[in-house]
């Protein structure tokens, strides 16, 4: 039983880089909204010493063009396709999920209820998940932000509202200044912080959610190496997504998979999957005696 390696939403265009997509166990699309979106004005990205900032602003073709133009092309790749679904109201999520539900090309839906670059929907996460659940029988993953007081509570709310899994974590809001002018480097000011800086937040979020729910967790945030991936598994993820690392290393999926196998072996695990939850058992957590959840791709 190997650990699925996916890309993080918004970090890979499978049509522009089909070979990279094929090196994954599943491809996650950039977030799709009901209507097309131009996204935010440039400058949209900036590197910092500990990560990167982005304010892409959910640029996407809208669900109609996605379903008619993109989905058939994505299906040609013969990689399971997860569609990331976004919106501004519960009705938006419902509409997009309803459009995707009948499509056999779609393996799973990931609800982006945590984009730091757009105004948040006024409804609670429970309402957004429930609205999506009512429209689809596909596996439904809720993608949460670590920038909340109690992520375990949100995880439980997502579970009660019908989510089948969690994607942890999205970026958190950050800002960088131009060295000389002291003006914000991104046109929008703040953006989402990803990369190495996010890893401790991802570890804490996954750790807490694994204790709070039975849902399978796709872990992401700052994974650069197989050892980083092993840590996400140890706190309770059962699949790992690669985001920012793909920008510098398009061959990261194969490399991280290989390094993860080596790192698991070095820790005495028969396979990487056996490392899932190791951080909890290492502390003697009774809560994890139950079955380990699985992400199926």
């Amino acid at each position: 039983m190997s650990v699925p390696i996916l890309n993080a939403s918004g970090c890979l265009d499978a049509l522009a880089a089909p070979a990279v997509a094929r090196s994954l166990d599943g491809f996650v699309t950039k977030t799709v909204t009901p209507l097309p979106r131009d996204g935010n004005p440039p400058v949209r990205i900036a590197e910092t010493d500990v990560g990167m900032l982005n304010s892409i602003g959910l640029q996407n073709p809208g669900i109609e063009a996605f379903v008619t133009d993109h989905l058939p092309q994505l299906a040609q790749l013969a990689v399971p396709i997860w569609v990331s679904v976004g919106g501004f109201t519960a009705a938006d999520y419902a509409e997009t999920c309803a459009a995707l539900d009948p499509r056999p090309e779609v393996a799973a839906l990931e609800l982006n209820v945590s984009c730091p670059n757009v105004e948040e929907a006024p409804e609670s996460i429970a309402e957004l998940v429930a609205a999506a659940r009512a429209e689809t029988s596909k596996p439904l993953y809720a993608k949460l932000s670590p920038a909340v007081p109690d992520i375990a509570e949100l995880a439980r709310a997502a579970e009660t509202s019908g989510a089948d899994g969690l994607s942890l974590v999205n970026t958190i809001r950050g800002l960088a200044l131009d060295e000389r002018t002291l003006a914000p480097r991104l046109a929008r000011g703040a953006g989402g912080l990803s990369g190495p800086a996010l890893k401790p937040l991802a570890l804490a979020a996954i750790f807490a959610c694994r204790l709070a729910t039975d849902l399978p967790i796709v872990g992401m945030g700052g994974v650069q190496t197989g050892n980083d991936a092993l840590e996400l598994l140890a706190v309770g993820a059962c699949a790992v997504s690669l985001g920012t690392v793909l920008f510098a290393d398009p061959e990261a999926p194969a490399r991280v998979r290989r390094e993860l196998g080596d790192a698991a072996a070095a820790h005495g695990f028969a396979s990487a999957a056996d490392a899932v939850g190791a951080a909890h058992t290492a502390r003697g957590e009774p809560a994890l005696v139950r079955d380990q959840p699985k992400v199926s791709v």
């Binding site: 950039k30 440039p42 982005n54």
Partner: peptide, 22 residues
């Protein structure tokens, strides 16, 4: 030129407007 994170179409960081299209 535009700031680029990936150089191969993945990040949408380098978007510019050409003939009214991004």
């Amino acid at each position: 030129e535009a700031p680029m994170a990936c150089g191969y179409g993945g990040c949408y960081g380098c978007v510019v407007e050409v003939e009214g299209r991004l």
